[in-house]
Nucleic acid binder design. Structure first.
Lengths: 82, 82
DNA sequence: GTTGACCGGGATAGGAATACCGGTATTGTT
DNA sequence: AACAATACCGGTATTCCTATCCCGGTCAAC
């Protein structure tokens, strides 16, 4: 019954994910994208900044939908970059 | 500062996700798929059974990878079914 | 009758989601 | 120049939830 703390790699992976989402957002505002994804801005901010390294699946899915990017591509780039 | 409890819809969404993963697993054993995805079997079981309705993004990504299914398809079916 | 696969409950540590606050920088307005 | 609005950031606090383990039980196959 442990749930070990997140490793450094997992945190880095989260930071990469955040950077990808940030990049996909482009010139749009956080407020706009968050509203469209129906996710609180605070949550988007924490994910983009990597302060939430392992966000929930449906949260990322909603953001990817609002950003018009593919989840599979997100994971693929993740692997390529990581 | 609340984090409201999960709604009934969110739990149902989790159950649908679990059913889709279960279906994608086909005749393979949980043990085998979990090992390939590098996810503890207990975690896979809880997700498939819907007892963990909002699993982490990377967990689902790893399972989808081991199952050879697309995350986007998973979300799309989610919407269609939901 | 042991092995393998699945289930459900219980326990626990660590983290996600969310809200609020103050701060900074930019842009536009009067 | 002073001001307001907008966008973003970092920190803090709180509730609820996930990830993980352990255990006993069931059912089928061999």
């Amino acid at each position: 019954m442990v749930r070990p703390p997140l490793t450094a790699q997992e945190r880095e992976r989260g930071e990469r994910l955040g950077r990808m989402l940030r990049e996909a957002r482009g010139p749009r505002s956080m407020t706009e994208v968050a509203a469209e994804a129906r996710v609180p801005v605070e949550t988007l901010r924490k994910i983009e900044s990597g302060r939430v390294p392992t966000p929930a699946f449906f949260t990322v899915a909603a953001l990817a939908g609002a950003l018009g990017i593919s989840l599979d591509a997100l994971v693929a780039d993740q692997i390529l970059t990581g």
